[in-house]
Design a protein around this nucleic acid. Structure first.
Length: 250
DNA sequence: AAGGAACTCAACCGCCGACAA
DNA sequence: GTTGTCGGCGGTTGAGTTCCT
């Protein structure tokens, strides 16, 4: 299978990649890709590569779009809240970066992966080694501690809506964001987003707790970000239930 | 100021699963 | 059932940048 698999791999991606450009994307390539995707939509990456006049592999196009060009991507520092979510979900799932990324609108799996490697692996390493840290490392750690939430309550508020029922999956957020709940339609295996006012006491209305569906989760959903909204609609078509996945060994 | 170490992040690679022919 | 194609995922790399001595 290894040979066969690799052969197939080489044939389909490799055939495209023959003579394909590699390395950093130029603004011109970005422009071509954006124009093409805006007009035709994403998917069918091999044909995107061909039709858009890009001398790139389909894979490369997909990656560039997903990780960099896609609208709605957040740039810049991870917030303490996001960091908390990453920690929480990584504890649950391990290196399931794409799954974790679904809970962080505007962040890509690649970004989260990189973030984890640089911030948490490093911490892990230094805590294991206990060697006399260099001044640089110390400073870095201090910086990291600065972003750690001082207020555990606020952290809790953000990270752990501890319990959701099988009917409702909570999305909760802070100023400028919108509280949203998802009604889980077990017949359709879908989550349907409902918008509610932040003070809605109706959260507690959904108290029918089914242990099999208990899970902690958080979405920060930027109101101003139509794409992230769309993204959620897509992602939660097949909603992931961390706890049930966890218990089912998935 | 210079050199080297450490860090960041975009991009690539290899593998796997889904799906269609 | 087999084969080929494609999309997606996680791991890794390496160039550029920042920081420290």
């Amino acid at each position: 299978m290894l040979e066969g698999g690799k052969m197939i791999e080489r044939m389909h991606w490799g055939a495209q990649e023959q003579g394909c450009r590699k390395g950093p994307w130029t603004p011109e390539e970005d422009r071509l890709l954006i124009e093409y995707v805006n007009f035709h939509g994403d998917g069918r990456w091999s044909s995107v590569a061909r039709s858009a006049g890009l001398n790139r592999s389909g894979k490369s196009c997909r990656l560039r779009w997903v990780n960099y060009l896609r609208p709605g991507l957040k740039r810049g520092q991870m917030t303490p809240q996001e960091e908390g979510i990453i920690v929480e979900l990584h504890a649950l799932w391990g290196n399931k970066w794409s799954t974790i990324a679904r809970y962080l609108p505007g962040r890509t799996d690649n970004e989260i992966k990189n973030y984890w490697r640089t911030h948490f692996k490093k911490k892990d390493k230094s805590s294991k080694k206990q060697e006399k840290p260099k001044a640089q490392t110390l400073k870095q750690q201090q910086r990291q501690q600065e972003v750690q939430p001082q207020d555990k309550e606020s952290m809790k508020r953000v990270i752990l809506p501890q319990v959701a029922s099988h009917e409702v999956m909570k999305m909760t957020g802070e100023q400028g964001r919108q509280e949203v709940d998802f009604t889980y339609d077990s017949m359709e295996d879908q989550c349907i987003p409902n918008v509610m006012s932040p003070d809605a006491a109706s959260w507690s209305d959904h108290s029918a707790v089914d242990e099999g569906f208990l899970w902690s989760g958080l979405w920060l959903w930027d109101q101003d970000d139509p794409y992230s909204r769309m993204d959620h609609t897509c992602n939660y078509d097949k909603a992931v239930n961390p706890i049930s996945d966890f218990y089912s060994g998935g």
